[in-house]
Design a protein around this nucleic acid. Structure first.
Lengths: 212, 212
DNA sequence: CTCACAATACCTAAAAATTGGTATTTTTCA
DNA sequence: TGAAAAATACCAATTTTTAGGTATTGTGAG
């Protein structure tokens, strides 16, 4: 059995039900003294400043902050806390980025209670947890003939644009420079003979239906 | 207080932690007799066949099945169960699709415990729950009702945005001030719960397809 | 009649997209 | 092994969109 004093945890996640679920699952663990929840990063930052928790559980996308920025901001105000990502993004590149920013663990929300508790216990002892992830399947299948003039990367970026991500957000997700994403964006519009991103989205959406 | 006999629920979701969270949140509700969990659709189908539950809680994306296919397969083996989507996809188009396939509710995972229990209670009484849509939805032409929250002018401008016109161009065509067009653009995005014009275009294009 | 909503318009600041370049590295394949 | 294509990255200037407001006028339903 492990022997460490009781700890405090701040959980920052805008998915209320998930947060409540986490709370009722691990809230009773003996080593946890205090588990508080915040919906936004700014809310979370205040809690962290006040409580100075040993652990922070952090969702990757938050309404007021995204991705590694959240890690940096947490580090800025309280460098001693161990940051555990707890997120839907099962992207190895994203995970790698988080590791570089100093997170101590990166856990998919599909984790079991047992593994979660284990990762928490490890984190307290400064043992990192970075599982092997299988990357997401490509969002655009190769069969969409009209898209075949586009490269793989271009298709990927076209889809993210369609979902409403900005170039900066896409760059972050794909671990690219924003310049690169904008170059791809330009090439996409040009290759398809379109005028702007609105037409690009309309074009892609139409293809999805025609071939479904 | 509602008065219905105790019910069985099958929850199909590959996010274990979330499932466990749901279980510990609502497992003690008096009206729930039995709450069992499956990680995959095929596993879930067997449970449904065996248990014949009143409710099925269903994640939209599963390792062995995705989206509306899961709904269809559930219907195939046990048409009487009420299917409640419980998913990260807070996408109006996806929700619409699920409603058409006969789901009785579509709940984001960010839902609170209170709202979840409410939706479950409603579902048992065959009252659907589709957030951000009209409370008692007509069974015909729902897609129109989604556009009906928009005013005439807003629809008109939404269509022009979809065609790739800029605000300035739209203003010129409609003899409006560019300020006005931008105000409409803002209201459109806000009314439909979207993030930006790219999502607006995707939304409108989807609706067009559904009506054809 | 009045109250809510639609439609219009204005302002500013900031963020994002677009345009028009260039240029290096990496990958693919003939 | 070369050449082509793809992917990456950078710079600067401009346009467009987004976000925070406010405010006036018209219009239809209760």
């Amino acid at each position: 059995m492990l022997n460490f004093s009781e700890i405090s945890i701040v959980h920052i996640d805008d998915h209320l039900l998930f947060a409540q679920g986490v709370y009722s699952l691990i809230g009773n663990e003996t080593f946890i003294q205090n588990l508080v929840h915040a919906e936004t990063l700014s809310e979370g930052l205040e809690l962290v400043k006040k409580i100075q928790p040993e652990l922070v559980l952090l969702d990757y996308f938050l309404p007021d902050s995204k991705g590694v920025e959240s890690i940096q901001k947490l580090r800025d105000i309280y460098p001693d806390c161990r940051i555990i990502l707890l997120t839907m993004e099962n992207n190895p590149e994203v995970m790698e980025k988080c590791r570089r920013e100093g997170a101590i663990a990166y856990l998919p929300k599909s984790i079991s209670k047992k593994d979660l508790v284990e990762a928490l216990e490890n984190a307290i002892q400064d043992i990192p947890t970075f599982p092997q992830l299988s990357p997401d399947p490509p969002l655009v299948s190769e069969s969409k003939s009209q898209l075949n003039i586009l490269s793989k990367r271009e298709k990927q970026i076209a889809n993210l644009i369609t979902k409403g991500y900005t170039s900066a957000e896409i760059a972050e997700q794909l671990f690219l420079s924003e310049f690169t994403v904008n170059t791809h964006r330009r090439n996409l519009i040009h290759k398809l003979g379109l005028k702007n991103s609105a037409q690009l989205v309309a074009f892609i959406e139409n293809l999805k239906f025609k071939e479904s």
